[in-house]
Amino acid sequence: MKYEAGARKRGWSLIFFFTPLLLFTASGAAGNRLCPEVNGNCLWISYGELIKEPDGSVILPLKINYGEISGEPGKAAELENVRVVCTSGKKAGKRNLRWYELPAALKDGTWQTEVRSACNGCFTVRAEARRKIGNRVCFYSAQTSLVLFARGPAGNKNSRPEVPVKIQCPLQISFLPRFDYWPQTGAAVTVRVAFAGRPVPSGSVCVYDENFPPAAIMTGAKGECRYVPADDRKLNRKGKTAFKHLTAAAEYRDGTDRYIVSCTRILHRSRFANRRMAPGIMIFGGCAAGFLAVIIGMRSRARI
C-alpha cells in the first residue's frame, strides 16, 4: 500500500519492505517475494560462498540480481551503466571516502562481481544501474556492507585509484549498525532511509519474510525503524555458518523518473536466543542426583 506522508509536495511515496531470503547454499536465487509496494524490477545483492585462497586471502562472490522481487527475474541486458563500486573501512557512507571500482561481468543473465581481501576489513559494496523506458529513466541502486576475515600477505589486493562517486539515486537505504561481523536472527536492526541526505520520517514499511507472514512498520521522526528478524527454525537446522539474506527496499517517484534502492545483509542463526537455563539445570541436577543415588545405593550394600 502506498502512504503519502508530509512530503506530499514532492509527490513521492515511501515504502519499505524487508524480504529475508532463505538460501541453502550461498549462491541462492530469490524466492517468492511479494513486493506490492515496489512495482517492477529492483536491483539487489546476494552473497555467494566465501572462497579461502591457499595464501590466506579470501574472495567473496556477489551477485547483482535484477528483476521483480515478486518473482519474475528481469533481463539484465536492459540495464545500462552498470557499475559496482566498493569502499573499505568503517567510515563507508560518509564523505571523502576512497571508492574503487570492482570489475563486474554478466554471467548467465546475472551481473556478478567479487570482493577480495588479504586482511581483516569492512567493505561497503554499491551497485548502480539505470534503465530507459521511453523518455523515463529508472535509477537502481543496491548496497551491502560486509566484514571479511583473512590472513594473507600484506597489502590490500583491491587497492585501486580513487574513483569519484556519482550517486545516481538520491534515495539511500541502509542497515544500522552498518557493520556487524556476525548478524543473527533475534538481533534488532535499524533501517534508515534518507533522501538527498535528509532522513525521511513517517514512511510506510512492508516487512516480508519468506517463512513468516508479511508485516508493516513505519519510519520514525529520524527516518529510522526497528526490525527484529524472527527466529527461523529452518535456518537453525543448518550449521552455525549457514546464512540467509535480509533485504530492504524502497521506491521513489519524481515526475517521470523512478528511484528504486535496496540494501542487503546476511543473517546467521541466533547463537544465544535458544539457550535455556531451566532445562539445562534440570538435566544437570537430575543426572547428578541420579548418579549420587546409584552410588550411595551401591555403597550401602557393599561393606567394602
Binding site: 537453525n236 539457550r275 535455556r276 543426572c287
Partner: peptide, 24 residues
C-alpha cells in the same frame, strides 16, 4: 554452558549429553 541450546536436534542432543556427562 549449563544452558541447554534448543537451536536444533543436534545441539539439543549434544547439550543433554554434555550436561549428563558433567553431572556424572
Amino acid at each position: 554452558y549449563f544452558l541447554l541450546d534448543l537451536t536444533n536436534p543436534v545441539t539439543v542432543v549434544m547439550g543433554i549429553i554434555s550436561l549428563s556427562l558433567t553431572a556424572f
